[in-house]
Amino acid sequence: EPSQADLDALLSAVRDNRLSIEQAVTLLTPSSGGGSGGGSMDAKEILTRFKDGGLDRAAAQALLAGRTPA
């Protein structure tokens, strides 16, 4: 399960175009075949909204942490 520091680094990389959204989703869902963790939004949607400015960093982190299976 990614830590808050991992999520923060991942969000920074996506925002700075050092990591594509697809690459980030793969890192967030290493063994689930890329499927959502059952959250209301999947990781790709969360990351896309964050990059487009629709979500701030704290909200994106909380959503990603919340949808990651324990």
Rank of each mutant, 00 (worst) to 15 (best):
Val25Gly: 02
Arg15Trp: 14
Thr29Tyr: 14
Ile21Asp: 00
Leu28Cys: 05
Asp6Lys: 10
Gln23Asp: 12
Asp6Thr: 06
Ala24Phe: 03
Gly66Cys: 09
Leu63Met: 09
Ser31Val: 07
Ile21His: 00
Asp8His: 08
Asn17Ser: 09
Ser12Ala: 06
Gly54Tyr: 15
Asp56Cys: 06
Arg57Ala: 12
Leu64His: 01
Ser40Thr: 15
Ser31Gln: 11
Asp42Pro: 06
Gln4Pro: 12
Leu55Ser: 01
Pro69Lys: 02
Glu22Asn: 07
Ala65Lys: 08
Gly38Pro: 13
Ala65Trp: 07
Leu64Gly: 00
Gly39Ile: 13
Arg57Leu: 10
Arg18Gly: 04
Gln61Val: 10
Ser40Asp: 10
Ala60Phe: 02
Gly37Leu: 11
Glu1Met: 13
Glu45Lys: 05
Thr29Ile: 09
Ala58Trp: 11
Ala62Gly: 05
Leu63Ser: 03
Ala62Glu: 09
Ala60Arg: 01
Leu63Cys: 04
Pro30Met: 06
Leu27Ser: 04
Glu22Ile: 05
Thr48Ala: 08
Ala70His: 08
Asp56Ser: 11
Leu11Ser: 01
Leu27His: 05
Ser3Tyr: 12
Ala60His: 00
Leu63Gln: 03
Leu55Phe: 04
Ala60Ser: 03
Leu47Val: 01
Ser31Trp: 11
Asp52Asn: 15
Gln61Cys: 13
Ser36Val: 11
Leu47Gln: 00
Arg49Phe: 08
Thr29His: 12
Thr26Gly: 08
Asp6His: 13
Ala43Asp: 04
Arg67Lys: 10
Thr68Pro: 12
Thr48Val: 08
Ala58Asp: 11
Leu28Met: 08
Lys51Gly: 03
Thr29Phe: 14
Gly53Glu: 03
Leu55Ala: 01
Leu10Trp: 05
Ala9Arg: 09
Met41Asn: 05
Ala65Val: 11
Val14Arg: 00
Gly66Tyr: 09
Asn17Leu: 06
Ser32Thr: 11
Ser20Val: 02
Glu45Ser: 07
Gly35Ala: 15
Gln4Met: 14
Ser12Leu: 09
Leu10Asn: 01
Asp56Phe: 02
Ala65Tyr: 06
Ala59Pro: 01
Gly53Pro: 01
Asn17Gln: 05
Arg67Asn: 10
Arg18Thr: 13
Lys51Asn: 03
